[in-house]
């Protein structure tokens, strides 16, 4: 990747990117292959269900899952069966947690990168927090914040915070020495070093953190719903499990996967706009 952490697109580095671009068109995959693989997978799945005599509560037939998904997505949102309000609750909580966690991560990472005292006070605690299993905090969060959105949002934010913090911090700190020399040679002020060099240079790392964060945000929201939710996809997953509606559970799971993928893609697209200077063929995944 062309970043300032490994800067100077010198000839050698350029050659590498060029070579990579030749392979990446192939590696990025032809959508036809993806679709063909999905069709084969679903067919195999159907065969296993039909000929393998697997009970429906263990492995529902693909058609049943599709039906459940279709029903859940097309009944009126006011209907008790509709997935839509739950999808909204989970996604909005995940997004709120994402905004909160990544905002805190960027601000705190930036402060640590800019100020030595803040860095020495804050960083040990942040790393201490990271080594804790944050999901295990959910019961406590319930005590403090109750059953509902605040708990979900907080857990999501906690999960998002760390990767964003670490990436923002290292992105701001690890700027190539020659660039720092260039700026010192121009007698740049601290503020100019930050705004003209460190911040844009850190964007690549920040986005890497955000991409990890967006997936974790949804994870946090769903886990909180399992334990402390009143609504959301996590809740209906649990409900389907109680009533052995495995097809419904599968449908919800697929819905979660799709929404997570969409969020990730949106982030990827905005990354491309923000970090316009990185040639798109060096994008991995």
């Amino acid at each position: 990747m062309t970043t300032l952490q490994a800067p100077a697109p010198a000839p050698a580095a350029r050659r590498r990117t060029v070579r990579r671009s030749a392979g990446s068109a192939r590696r990025r995959g032809d959508p036809r292959y993806v679709i063909a693989a999905a069709v084969v997978f679903v067919l195999l799945w159907q065969l296993v269900v039909v000929f393998g005599s697997v009970p429906g509560y263990m492995l529902p037939a693909p058609m049943d899952v599709a039906k459940a998904l279709w029903h859940g997505m097309t009944v009126a949102p006011s209907d008790r069966d509709s997935y839509l309000p739950h999808l909204w609750h989970t996604t909005s909580a995940a997004l709120a947690g994402f905004a909160l966690g990544s905002g805190a991560g960027i601000v705190l990472g930036g402060l640590c990168a800019m100020n030595r005292v803040v860095n020495q006070v804050v960083r040990p605690y942040v790393f201490g927090l990271q080594s804790m299993p944050k999901v295990a905090l959910t019961p406590l969060l319930m005590v403090w914040l109750g059953f509902g959105n605040p708990t979900k949002i907080t857990l999501a934010a906690l999960l998002v915070f760390f990767p964003v913090f670490v990436n923002a911090y290292t992105g701001l700190v690890n700027v190539d020495d020659t660039y720092l020399r260039l700026f010192r040679g121009m007698s740049a002020s601290r503020w100019q070093m930050l705004s003209q060099l460190r911040l844009p240079a850190a964007m690549v790392a920040v986005f890497a953190g955000l991409e990890m964060g967006i997936v974790r945000a949804q994870l946090g929201a769903v886990v909180a719903e399992f334990l402390a939710g009143q609504n959301g996809l996590g809740i209906i997953l649990i409900r389907f499990q109680y009533v052995n509606d495995t097809a419904g559970a599968f449908a919800v799971f697929i819905l979660l996967a799709i929404s997570s993928f969409v969020l990730y893609r949106v982030l990827k697209a905005s990354r491309k706009r923000v970090i316009f200077w990185i040639p798109s063929h060096t994008d991995k995944r």
Partner: peptide, 12 residues
């Protein structure tokens, strides 16, 4: 004026 061994251009 200084010219370094690598161009040290801002990629953005």
């Amino acid at each position: 004026g200084i010219v370094f061994q690598s161009p040290v251009l801002l990629p953005w």
